[in-house]
Amino acid sequence: MTTLSEKKFATAAFDRARWTPLLELSVHEVFDIMLSTQLCPYQSAVAASEGEFTALVGLAGSLCGVLSIRCADQSARIMAGKMLDIPPEEVDNNSWDALGEIANMIAGNFKGKLSGVGNHCMLSVPTIIVGTDYEARSITGGNIIEAVFDFEKRPFWVTLELHE
């Protein structure tokens, strides 16, 4: 297996203006293709307590940081149900698995859209956090892109935090 230490790469320069629409497009494509769902921006004010499920995927290499997605428990169940083609009430722990896989696909899709970056960026396996009573401290130096989408009338957060 090739490791990052064996590769030579340059860290991609953060470009919010160009990357924000690419991240949003990546989210739209994943939901359209895998969940047959069209997302739109979330218009209402949102409270952090509405996001009980968080999935994290680490990026290392030419992009270095974390992509996270967050939503309510019920939203995660509906997402898993759509992916599996079953009613949300029949979804058990699959909602964790589904949310992690969605985060993974968004991260992979996004890095693939950055010309010359995807080849030198690796993704971690997803990590799932359940609950809202935690505090995340970023060491990424403020390079953050966040978008909130409307999924079944509930907020769905996508956040990309990158190191300088």
């Binding site: 090739t2 696909m105 991260a107 992979g108 995807g118 690796m122």
Partner: peptide, 12 residues
């Protein structure tokens, strides 16, 4: 079947 669609991974 992968999200790791980078050219180097595919070639490998």
């Amino acid at each position: 079947i992968t999200t790791e669609g980078s050219e180097s991974n595919v070639v490998q």
